[in-house]
Design a protein around this nucleic acid. Structure first.
Lengths: 260, 260
DNA sequence: TAGTGGTCTAGACCACGGC
DNA sequence: CCGTGGTCTAGACCACTAC
């Protein structure tokens, strides 16, 4: 099935319910990742793909555009579309819960719950979540472990009105994001994050089993739902010896004037 | 000009050379950012916008899609398209040079050049840049200042074959990225970055005017051109007191199966 | 049933690159 | 000149939501 250029690939499935452009997208991606198409080489032209697949050019463009956005190919007007050779890694950071992040890294996560209660938010949390004077929050403080090694201390606050029965239904040793998705249909889509460095306090050192004043990461995160509502405010300390942050930064396609 | 809903907006300019979908995109964005449309409110339907603007639905969809990708609006099949309320900030991290980053933050950057020479790369750099045994690199070591305060020490290596005349044409106290863009037409589009924490060495402490063993950021970056060619390997140390990292993470639209 | 967004078509014209 | 990608049209049908 692999390796040979097929002048007549198996036809697309028009009854599968999967949009044609997704099927095309998927095929192109497989050809790229399998090495059938190599870095710098051109894709067949859009016209050619359209004829080959038996779809209109617009449909092919939709597929090609999405792969351009991912960075795996790039188009040059008048020349063609080329394989970028930029790899799609799995481990660049997305909006991920600790649980998801550790699984992606191949480690086994677990948590030790230090406290879990409903309380009044402090001012920083109230402002971050846009709460009123009387709004309360769930506050969950945990030590996070990867393969039984303590990685960080994390304090997470959520508005009570977002998930009113959390105290009854949620086992705080498990993944919070899974609970939110399954019980409340809540999906975090954006997280704003500030990373700073600091020294471990006596308490942090004890919980993380490191020497006091060791360098640590300090994270401050605010997560938002699709409609822009703030859903979670997190402050956490991760130890510097065992934790690292891996980012992929893309040059913004400055298509839009951003008026201050 | 502002605040009133106009049933008949000024027509699009079909002769400007600016694509219609960009003009629509820009208008919608202005209406959102000006507060004319508020968080949670629906946009006019795509049919309505198309009729209003005198363009086809596909053109409107192209504009709407791009704003969805940015996260400022979101669409729900059968219901409509809504304002997310998620702000487009200017200061989330992109692929930015130190110079660009500081200007965005409103600070004045400058650099003290510690060394600038052609040399053999160490093994880490050779591997990061995919170089052969005989390939040499430009190596530029600088202290970076913001408003005359030392922020970090940065060592940047570039393959000689990428920009062969750099030693002659480039003033190493200025922006490297600007030089690459202007003299060689080179554009960095992707940067992979690893962030770790550490303690300032004696030399770092001296250069950064901080006490030794202060917590610092350690960055390792590899930047790529659009065609996937590695262009730069950077190791840098930024002091923890004055530097912070601000990220916006988006939940990946897992439209694509990632094999392996 | 009516309105919405999502997909798709079969063309068209343009701008650009290379020959 | 031709082939390329980029934009655009005027429809079509579908799936979904709300009433």
């Amino acid at each position: 099935m692999n390796g040979m250029k097929r002048p007549h690939p198996s036809p697309l499935d028009r009854r599968s319910g999967i949009p044609l452009y997704r099927q095309i997208q998927q095929r192109l991606l497989e050809q790229i990742q399998s090495g059938e198409l190599r870095q710098g080489e051109p894709l067949p032209s859009i016209q050619r793909i359209a004829a080959l697949m038996g779809v209109s050019q617009m449909t092919v463009r939709q597929a090609v555009k999405s792969l351009c956005d991912l960075g795996v190919i790039y188009s040059r007007q008048g020349k063609g579309t080329f394989i970028s050779g930029i790899k799609m890694e799995r481990d660049f950071r997305q909006v991920l819960s600790f649980t998801e992040e550790m699984k992606v890294r191949g480690a086994t996560p677990h948590s030790e719950v230090l406290s879990f209660q409903i309380q009044m938010p402090n001012q920083e949390t109230r402002e971050a979540l846009g709460l009123g004077d009387k709004d309360k929050v769930f506050c969950l403080r945990r030590v996070r472990y990867a393969d039984s090694l303590p990685m960080g201390v994390e304090t997470s606050c959520l508005p009570v009105h977002l998930c009113p029965n959390l105290m009854e239904t949620y086992d705080p040793a498990t993944s919070l994001y899974e609970e939110l998705a399954e019980q409340y249909g809540i999906q975090v889509t954006v997280t704003d994050e500030v990373i700073e460095v600091g020294k471990a306090s006596a308490e942090e050192a004890r919980l993380l089993q490191i020497v006091p004043k060791s360098p640590i990461f300090l994270f401050t995160r605010v997560s938002y739902l699709e409609n822009g509502m703030p859903a979670e405010h997190v402050k956490s300390s991760y130890q510097g010896d065992r934790y690292r942050v891996v980012n992929r930064l893309m040059r913004a396609k400055r298509e839009l004037a951003i008026s201050s």
